[in-house]
């Protein structure tokens, strides 16, 4: 007879704990948005709600990212804060899961010129922004890192990754992490889930499932599609955003990692 806690029941306990923490964090963000952020205050209150109880209306309280961009001025809380969107938010935190590497590496974010540098890199990592369309001045540094045997992880759209690995000497040794949008989730083997307004939302892990960055991102299913909330970004506050115009999908739990994953029709 086996004694002690089995692996499955341990996973069940982890899932219960993560679920409780995750929902609590989301409810806290919703309450705070209603109490301090003009956009949500007006939208929810004038829509007939007097408390942060989500679930009414055709989109169940969710809002398209286009509407959020238009209303950027009202997304800062009353205490003030930036209203610019950060398309590289969350990338650094996802990096160790996106492409596990031995040792500290160099992250190459293939972004448009003028993008913000990646600011949340893991300790020991360095990062650079490269414009894949041109002979970027950062390319020699990338080549030097490759030559010294340091791991180089490049994140960007497929086309930009192709252009980058062609241009950089030793490009075949670059660890590619293609950027995917919610409506085009594939089976990998590598990938990060990205939205230009919310930043990086999740990662394809070794279990083959698209994991949410659950400590920073909450997702729920609404009639209008999957709605995402940034749990840690104070300003601009992004709550229940319909990424990609509203992509139908489900939030499930990974049987191996006991953390939330998204599954869309395409993915």
């Amino acid at each position: 007879m086996k004694t002690g806690i089995g692996r499955d029941s341990l996973r069940g306990m982890v899932k219960t704990g993560v679920d409780a923490l995750w929902r609590t964090a989301y409810r806290r963000v919703v309450r705070s948005a209603f109490a301090t952020v003009p956009f949500y205050r007006e939208r929810w209150a004038l829509g007939g709600r007097t408390e942060p109880r989500l679930g009414s209306g055709s989109a169940e309280g969710a809002v398209s990212t286009e509407d959020l961009v238009r209303a950027a001025v009202d997304l800062a809380p009353l205490a003030g804060g930036p209203t610019g969107f950060d398309p590289v938010r969350g990338l650094g935190g996802l990096l160790p899961l996106a492409r596990p590497t031995a040792g500290d590496g160099l992250l190459v974010a293939l972004e448009h010129p003028g993008a913000r540098p990646v600011w949340d890199l893991p300790r020991g990592w360095r990062g650079c922004l490269v414009d894949a369309e041109v002979d970027d001045p950062a390319l020699p540094e990338v080549g030097a890192a490759l030559g010294a045997g340091r791991p180089v992880v490049a994140v960007g759209p497929d086309k930009a990754l192709d252009g980058f690995t062609d241009r950089v000497p030793g490009g075949d040794r670059v660890h590619r992490v293609p950027r995917r949008t919610l409506d085009r989730l594939d089976s990998g083997p590598y990938g990060v889930l990205h939205d230009p307004v919310l930043g990086y939302l999740g990662v394809l892990r070794d279990c083959g499932l698209w994991h949410l960055d659950w400590t920073r991102v909450y997702a729920r299913r609404t009639r209008a599609g999957l709605a995402f909330t940034l749990l840690r970004q104070r300003s601009p506050r992004l709550v229940d955003a319909l990424v990609g115009g509203g992509v139908p999908g489900r939030v499930e739990w990974c049987p191996r990692h006991a953390t939330p994953v998204v599954r869309t029709v395409a993915g």
Binding site: P38, F39, R41, E42, R43, L46, A71, V73, D74, L78
Partner: peptide, 8 residues
């Protein structure tokens, strides 16, 4: 004073 927000 608080600003006038979009809804108002």
């Amino acid at each position: 004073p608080l600003p006038q927000f979009t809804g108002q």
